[in-house]
Design a protein around this nucleic acid. Structure first.
Length: 277
DNA sequence: CGGTGGACCTGCTGGC
DNA sequence: TGCCAGCAGGTCCACC
């Protein structure tokens, strides 16, 4: 579920709540995740003070005072909440971190695709899971020129190219569709065939869409929740994602749905022409 | 080598 | 009402 705007929304909330608190206890309820939680349970985190909460791509990095880090990925259905210990445990909450100040960091994931681990990377580096990630959409390297160079020779649909974490990280199925609509580019176009102008439109559109989605607290379709349990409001601003058969708010045509590389893809055939504009 | 498709999980929805 | 197929925001790996 969570793409960059959802993870960034969670990060901002955690950055207000966690730094300065000490981990008093760890409870693991379901070790048999796709990425097992057993190592976290055995990591002796008690007494560790949380210093900062950062994000890289769709990963959350929680810095501890002893240079260790907690690395979290929400997979498709992960939710993080911070609540008082009196709230009963939900069915798919797999891990609790009990914190000083009478709060509990709770990690929920019905589909168990998520990841939560302790790491100790070499000084001033990211954990190895993050080494292969491409540029951040809000970094200055991310530009039309960057996308143009990265797309040369890539005979894959531009939508798949945008979702390639090694190119640009954090854009998933929802925001790829929304970005392509805003840039007025058909998702099936081959990345290698994009012009410089189109790559510039893509970079601008990606930043614009992601910025507005963060401001709205992300997009809740099914599982995603903000740290306080509320839903992301960007679902109301979606122009194409999940709107197959509905009327395009820009041209009045009908939104279409098509599978690209196994993923549902939504676009407006009127606004996103097959050929270059 | 780059690109695609299936697997990993559980839950929900829609059709019959 | 009940059952079952199909689908869901991501990532990894095998295969062509």
């Amino acid at each position: 579920m969570p793409e960059l705007p959802e993870v960034e929304t969670v990060r901002r909330a955690l950055a207000r709540l966690l730094p300065g608190r000490t981990i008093c206890g760890v409870e693991v309820f379901s070790p048999a995740m796709r990425n097992p939680l057993t190592p976290v349970a055995e990591a002796r985190l008690e007494g560790c003070r949380i210093e900062a909460v950062r994000r890289r791509g769709r990963y959350l990095v929680i810095d501890l005072h002893d240079r260790r880090q907690l690395l979290a990925h929400l997979g498709m259905s992960g939710v993080i909440r911070v609540e008082p210990p009196t709230v009963p445990r939900r069915k798919h909450e797999h891990l609790f971190l009990h914190l000083s100040g009478d709060l509990v960091f709770r990690f929920e994931c019905p589909r168990r695709f998520s990841m939560f681990k302790e790491t100790r990377p070499a000084a001033d580096t990211w954990p190895e899971e993050l080494q292969s990630l491409g540029v951040e959409p809000f970094a200055c390297e991310f530009s039309g020129d960057y996308l143009f160079r990265a797309s040369r020779g890539r005979r894959t649909p531009v939508k798949t190219f945008l979702m390639d974490n090694a190119v640009v990280t954090g854009i998933g199925n929802i925001y790829a569709a929304e970005t392509l609509f805003e840039a007025m580019i058909r998702p099936t176009r081959l990345a290698a065939g994009l012009t410089r102008r189109e790559c510039q439109r893509l970079a601008d559109a990606a930043r614009s869409v992601l910025t507005r989605a963060i401001a709205a607290g992300g997009t809740t379709i099914h599982d995603y929740r903000q740290v306080d349990g509320s839903q992301g409001r960007f679902v109301q601003e979606l122009q194409v994602y999940g709107r197959a058969g509905a009327v395009c708010r820009r041209c009045g045509g009908r939104i279409e749905q098509q599978r690209i590389a196994g993923r549902s893809t939504y676009f407006c055939p009127g606004c996103q022409k097959r050929s270059q504009i």
